[in-house]
Design a protein around this nucleic acid. Structure first.
Length: 552
RNA sequence: GGGCGCGUGGCCCAGUCCGGAUAUGGCAACAGCCUCCUAAGCUGUAGAUCGGGGGUCCGAAUCCCCCCGCGCCCGCCA
C-alpha cells in the first residue's frame, strides 16, 4: 500500500465528522480546474433536505481547523476546496528526503505472479503479441511500485500440436539449419503443405502420441528448437527492457506426471465422448482435457501450471489476448469451483492488434515483427536526433535514439486501454510529437538541463504565488492517487495519462517561469520544484518503461 | 445463429465501473512565438447530433431496453 500525506482522506474525515450523511463518492479530485478537491452536493441536498448554502456553512465550520485547507468556495451545486500548495509541496519533499520516494510504500506480504507473453515459440514476436508483453511488464512494475512482491513468468507451450508442426516442418524443410529464419520457414511450409496433403496431419497425431509417451529424442529435439526461437524472442524483448523472471516449460508438467494428477483429481467431474475426456462448466460449455487417443490438451496442462503457481504465489494475474477469454473463464471455473483454489486469480485481456492490410498471422508470414518495429523506430529516431544535435558524438546519438525508440514503442502501446483493439500504423508508431514518449522525455531533459546548471540551493521560507507553479505542484502531489487507481484497476494506461498531464503542467511552467534567471527567492523554490518534478516524472516513467536521458 | 467486448471532431485517444459545473488531450489543417534555462516545445483558430432510437432521473457520453456497425470466441488447436 501507499504511504503519503493524503489530504483527500483527511478532508473526508473532517467533513464526515460534521456531516454524517457524507458519501465518500461525492468528494473527488477536481478535474474541471475549479479547485483541488470538489464536493458534489446533489446527493446531500436531497438526503439532508437542505440547501447548498446551509451545507456550505457546515462545511466551512468543519474545515476551519484543517490547516492544509486554503479555502472552500460554493459554486452552483459544488463546493470546491483549495489545498495550500506549500502543504502539497512539503508532503512530497518530506517523503523524498525521509524515504527517498513519493509516495512511500508499505510492503504487502502478498506474492503476485504476472504471467505474460507466453507466446508459442514458433516464430519471432510480432507487434500483436508484444502488446501482451508490454502490458504485462508494466503491470508487474506498477504492482511492484505499489508494494507487492511481484514475479513474472512466461509459460512455454512446447507440448502442443503447433510445436509438433514446427518440429516436423524443421525435419522436412529445415535443411538441418536451426536458425529462427529457417525454422519459421519450415513452420509456414508445413501448414501450406497440409492443405493438400492430409497424411501430414496424421503424421503429426502420431508424433504427439509418441511425444506424450515420453519419447526423449522428440522431446529434447523440440526443446532444442523451442530454445532457438525463445532465444530470439527473449533478445527482442530485451530491446524493450522487458525481462521475464522465469520461463516455465509446459512439458515439465507432462513428464513430471502433474497433468495426469490433474485429470485424476478431476475424475469425478469428467465426462466421456468417444474416449475423449471433458468437463462441462456451469454455463454448459464443454472443455476437453484429453483427446480420445489419450493425449492431453492445453486446458489440462494449463491447470497443472496454475496449480504449480499456487505453491509460491497468493495472487495470479494472467495477461492474455482476448481470444483466450473463454479459456480464462473455464480455467477460473475449474480452479475455483472444482479444485477450491483459494488464491486470487485475475485475467487481464488485451485486444487484437491488426495491420492496415488485415490481421496478423505467423503461419501466413503476415506480421510486423518486433525486430522490424525496433529497427525502423530506431532509424527514425536516429535521423531526427542527428539532425537536431549535431554537437553530440555518434555513440551518444545512437544511445539516445535507442532509448527514444524503445520508449516510443512501449508508450504507443501502453497509452491505450487494453480492452481496445488497435490498428498498427507506421506513421503513428514513428510520430515523435504531441502525446508521445519523446514529448515526455524531452521535458525531462529540460528539467535536467536546468538542474545541471543550478548548483546547490537552500530552501527556507517559501510561498507559491504563480499559477503555473501551483498547478505543477498539484500535479506532482496527486501522483499517489493515480497510482492507486491504476493499481486497483490493473491499468497502467492510467499512469501514462497521468504522465501526459504532469508533463503538460511542467511545459506550461517552463514556458512561463524563468528558473535560473529568476530572483533569488523564486530561483531556489523553482529549482526545488524542478528537481521534484524530475524525480516524480522518472518514477512514473519507470512504470511504463520510458527510459529518460539527460539530453536529447 | 449464440456469448463476450468495442463504437467519442477527418484520424488516434481520455472520460463510462461510481450519472452532475462549458466532453480530455494529441495527429492532420490554419495563424502566431526562439537577442531568455533544449522549438521533439508553447499560444491561438477551426473541427463533436459522444453509432441510432426509446426509457429511468431534477440531471445521461456514463445506468436500463431495443437496433445498427466492427472485433474476438463458439476446435478432441493454443
Amino acid at each position: 500500500m501507499l504511504l503519503f500525506e493524503d489530504f483527500r482522506s483527511k478532508l473526508l474525515a473532517a467533513l464526515t465528522r460534521a456531516i454524517p450523511n457524507m458519501d465518500g463518492k461525492d468528494l473527488l479530485l477536481d478535474s474541471s480546474g475549479h479547485g483541488d478537491f470538489t464536493l458534489r452536493l446533489f446527493r446531500l441536498i436531497k438526503d439532508m433536505n437542505s440547501t447548498p448554502g446551509e451545507i456550505y456553512n457546515l462545511v466551512l465550520t468543519a474545515v476551519s481547523a484543517e490547516d492544509y485547507v486554503e479555502g472552500a468556495e460554493l459554486a452552483a451545486s459544488y463546493i470546491n476546496f483549495r489545498i495550500k500548495p506549500e502543504k502539497m509541496f512539503s508532503a512530497v519533499t518530506e517523503s523524498m528526503s525521509a524515504r527517498g520516494q513519493y509516495p512511500d510504500i508499505f510492503q504487502d506480504p502478498e506474492r503476485v505472479l504476472v504471467e505474460h507473453t507466453s507466446a508459442n515459440p514458433t516464430g519471432p514476436l510480432h507487434v500483436g503479441r508484444v502488446r501482451g508483453s508490454i502490458i504485462g511488464d508494466s503491470l508487474a512494475k506498477l504492482l511492484t511500485r505499489y508494494g507487492y512482491r511481484v514475479s513474472t513468468q512466461y509459460y512455454i507451450n512446447d507440448s502442443g500440436k503447433q510445436m509438433i508442426a514446427l518440429y516436423e516442418g524443421f525435419l522436412r524443410y529445415g535443411q538441418n539449419s536451426m536458425t529462427p529464419e529457417s525454422l519459421l520457414k519450415g513452420y509456414q511450409e508445413i501448414y501450406r503443405a497440409m492443405e493438400s496433403d492430409k497424411t501430414i496431419g496424421e503424421d503429426l497425431e502420431k508424433l504427439i502420441q509418441a511425444y506424450e509417451k515420453g519419447d526423449r529424442s522428440i522431446i529434447m529435439k523440440i526443446r532444442e528448437i523451442a530454445s532457438v526461437m525463445l532465444q530470439n524472442i527473449r533478445e527482442s524483448l530485451q530491446q524493450l527492457d522487458i525481462k521475464i523472471d522465469d520461463y516455465v516449460w509446459e512439458s515439465d508438467f507432462l513428464m513430471g506426471g502433474d497433468v495426469d494428477n490433474v485429470v485424476h483429481e478431476l475424475s469425478e467431474h469428467l465426462n466421456d465422448e468417444d474416449g475423449a475426456k471433458f468437463i462441462e462448466t456451469d454455463d454448459g460449455s464443454k472443455v476437453f482435457l484429453k483427446r480420445k487417443d489419450g493425449t492431453s490438451l492445453y486446458f489440462a496442462r494449463d491447470i497443472a501450471y496454475h496449480l504449480f503457481k499456487s505453491l509460491n504465489f497468493d495472487w495470479f494475474i494472467d495477461v492474455l489476448g482476448e481470444a483466450h477469454k473463454d479459456h480464462g473463464k473455464n480455467l477460473g471455473y475449474v480452479l475455483k469451483k472444482l479444485l477450491d483454489l483459494d488464491q486470487k486469480l485475475d485475467f487481464l485481456y488485451y485486444g487484437f492488434v491488426s495491420l492496415e492490410t488485415g490481421k496478423m498471422s505467423t503461419r501466413m508470414g503476415q506480421i510486423v515483427s518486433l525486430w522490424d518495429l525496433i529497427s525502423r523506430t530506431e532509424e527514425e529516431a536516429l535521423s531526427i536526433v542527428t539532425a537536431k544535435r549535431q554537437d553530440l558524438p555518434r555513440e551518444k546519438l545512437s544511445e539516445i535514439s535507442k532509448n527514444v525508440a524503445r520508449s516510443s514503442i512501449r508508450f504507443n502501446i501502453i497509452r491505450v486501454n487494453p480492452v481496445k483493439t488497435m490498428v498498427f500504423k507506421w506513421n503513428e508508431a514513428l510520430n515523435f510529437e504531441g502525446d508521445s514518449a519523446p514529448y515526455i522525455m524531452y521535458s525531462y531533459t529540460r528539467a535536467s538541463s536546468i538542474l545541471e546548471k543550478a548548483g546547490d540551493t537552500a530552501l527556507n521560507d517559501f510561498r507559491f504565488t504563480d499559477d503555473h507553479e501551483k498547478k505543477l505542484v498539484r500535479s506532482i502531489y496527486l501522483y499517489p492517487y493515480y497510482l492507486e487507481e491504476a493499481t486497483k484497476s490493473l491499468r497502467s494506461d492510467i499512469i501514462s495519462s497521468y504522465i501526459l498531464g504532469l508533463v503538460k503542467s511542467f511545459n506550461d511552467f517552463y514556458s512561463q517561469c524563468q528558473v535560473l534567471n529568476a530572483p533569488e527567492a523564486d530561483r531556489n523554490r523553482r529549482i526545488s520544484l524542478v528537481k521534484m518534478y524530475r524525480d516524480i516524472l522518472d518514477d512514473a516513467c519507470k512504470i511504463i518503461g520510458i527510459k529518460n536521458v539527460d539530453e536529447m
